[in-house]
């Protein structure tokens, strides 16, 4: 564990909490992509199957359980409790176009051709593009609430901080995992355009509005 890893995990946790609190307090999930949330639930489920066979630390176990629970909790709020506020008409990204390529790639490029390892690899590939339905929703409506922007910023920061963690680990521990690194860079790059808008608009108190 290094400072980048810890800060990455904490911003990931904060992103998830921001989203849950936003939905709960406003009693609405307007502007949030249920498709992205489903993809994240698939990501955590396929990745954290190692809860069964690999105990690392209490921190590790607790965080994995929290991510799983928060992810399914978000889906419950969006598709059950506050279903009436769900922006279904704008959330039209076809997630099979992300799931299928991630699955095929996981079968081809992986560390070991074993069920758990392939599922882990699939989760890494899928996570790298899981935010696309959310970004697509923002681009379709042309705007995002500030709180949604904060959520996206924390979520993007998480993977960006993980890149620093990997650089640190490469030099300090001689450890590197090319699958995670390449997918993590792809994931972070997808947020770059958003980061720019966040810094130039949201942080100056303006609403995130895309140019017409």
């Amino acid at each position: 564990m290094n400072i980048f890893r810890l800060l990455g995990d904490l911003s990931h946790l904060l992103a998830i909490i921001i989203l849950l609190v936003k939905i709960w307090k406003t009693r609405s999930c307007a502007g949030i992509s249920g498709k992205s949330q489903i993809l994240f639930a698939v990501v955590y489920t396929s990745r954290y199957l190692d809860l069964i066979n690999a105990f690392i630390s209490p921190y590790n176990t607790i965080m994995k359980i929290v991510f799983l629970a928060a992810s399914y909790g978000t889906i419950y709020l969006m598709y059950m409790k506050f279903k009436a506020t769900y922006d279904v008409n704008h959330d039209t990204f076809r997630i099979e176009f992300l799931i299928a390529p991630a699955a095929v790639l996981a079968l081809i490029v992986n560390h070991a051709f074993e069920p758990l390892e392939i599922l882990w690899t699939f989760s890494i590939y899928l996570e790298s593009v899981a935010i696309l339905p959310q970004l697509f929703l923002v681009s379709k409506t042309g705007e995002a609430e500030s709180i949604t922007s904060h959520y996206l910023f924390m979520l993007g920061s998480y993977r960006a901080l993980y890149i620093f963690n990997w650089i640190y680990r490469y030099y300090a521990e001689n450890h590197y995992d090319l699958i995670a690194i390449v997918a993590g860079i792809v994931q972070t790059v997808l947020y770059c355009d958003f980061f720019y808008l966040y810094i130039t608009k949201v942080l100056k108190g303006k609403k995130l509005q895309l140019p017409a």
Partner: peptide, 10 residues
């Protein structure tokens, strides 16, 4: 390629 991933990373 790295032979196994790190189960510690989330």
């Amino acid at each position: 390629l790295w032979q196994d991933h790190d189960h510690d990373e989330l």
